[in-house]
Computed example of a mutant assay.
Amino acid sequence: MIPYSLRIIFVLCCAFTSLDVHAANLFSAEAYHSLTADRRASNAGDIVTILVYENSSASNSADTSTNTGFAINGKVSTLYAGNNMAQVGAGDNYGGKGKIERAGRLLAQISASVTDVMSNGDLIVAGDQNIDVNGEKTRIHLKGRVRPVDIAQNNTVLSNRLADAQIDYTGEGFITDRSRPGLIPRFFAWLGLW
């Protein structure tokens, strides 16, 4: 006779062998990185350093000149007054020149997070940098789309490689407030007189 404890072990073994058993795959093709590969951002949540180097300049000039004139001449001859001449003339000269030049330069390094990976593999990145130095607050906000091939081996990418780039640079503080025009110049500018 088979002991009772062996019969229970046998029944349990038969019960567990009838269950479907699935092994977990430890390999993921999407997350695979070679041991010798560099660490570049490739997934949502990864961090990439954006090297912001933006130079912009614009120039616009206009030159306008007009010259108009007309004259009326007349001669009247009468018996009593003799020959009389009348002459009327008018003219207008106008000349105007205008030139607008604007230049801007922004240099910064911002660590941005990958917020999304598009179906074609492009990475959507966004990042903020807030700096406060002696009450002068500066904020840089950056957002854009980058191709993985544009990310260098040291996990950096130039800002001119970002597609649909949005770079906002704002500041506030004593120096920023003093660089803005006062109330009267702003009022005249609003009226279009400045």
Rank of each mutant, 00 (worst) to 15 (best):
L26E: 11
G121V: 12
A86G: 11
A41H: 12
A31M: 14
S56M: 02
A189P: 13
A62G: 13
K97T: 15
A58E: 14
L191W: 10
N67F: 06
D92R: 06
M1T: 04
Y169G: 01
R7S: 05
F187N: 00
A108Y: 13
G104V: 15
F10G: 01
A58V: 03
G82K: 12
V149P: 01
N43C: 08
S65N: 05
L51T: 12
D38C: 05
L162F: 01
N84K: 09
R39F: 00
V157P: 00
N73V: 13
G82F: 11
D20S: 13
P181Q: 07
A71I: 10
R102E: 13
V157Y: 04
T49I: 14
N160Y: 09
T115P: 07
R180T: 06
N134V: 10
F188S: 13
L6Y: 10
S28V: 07
R39C: 00
T170D: 04
D164H: 13
E136S: 06
W194Y: 12
D63E: 14
A108K: 12
W194K: 14
V149K: 15
Q166H: 15
F70M: 14
G135Y: 11
P148L: 08
V11Y: 03
D122N: 10
G171A: 09
N43S: 03
S65F: 04
R161C: 04
T66I: 09
P3E: 02
T138A: 09
N73E: 15
S57E: 07
A112F: 10
I9V: 05
L191Y: 03
S5N: 13
N25T: 03
I140L: 11
A58Y: 10
Y53S: 10
I175Q: 02
F188I: 06
A15W: 15
G89I: 04
L6G: 00
G171M: 15
S159I: 05
V146Q: 06
Y53M: 00
A62L: 12
I50K: 08
G74N: 15
N83D: 12
Y4D: 07
N93W: 01
N154R: 07
R139Q: 03
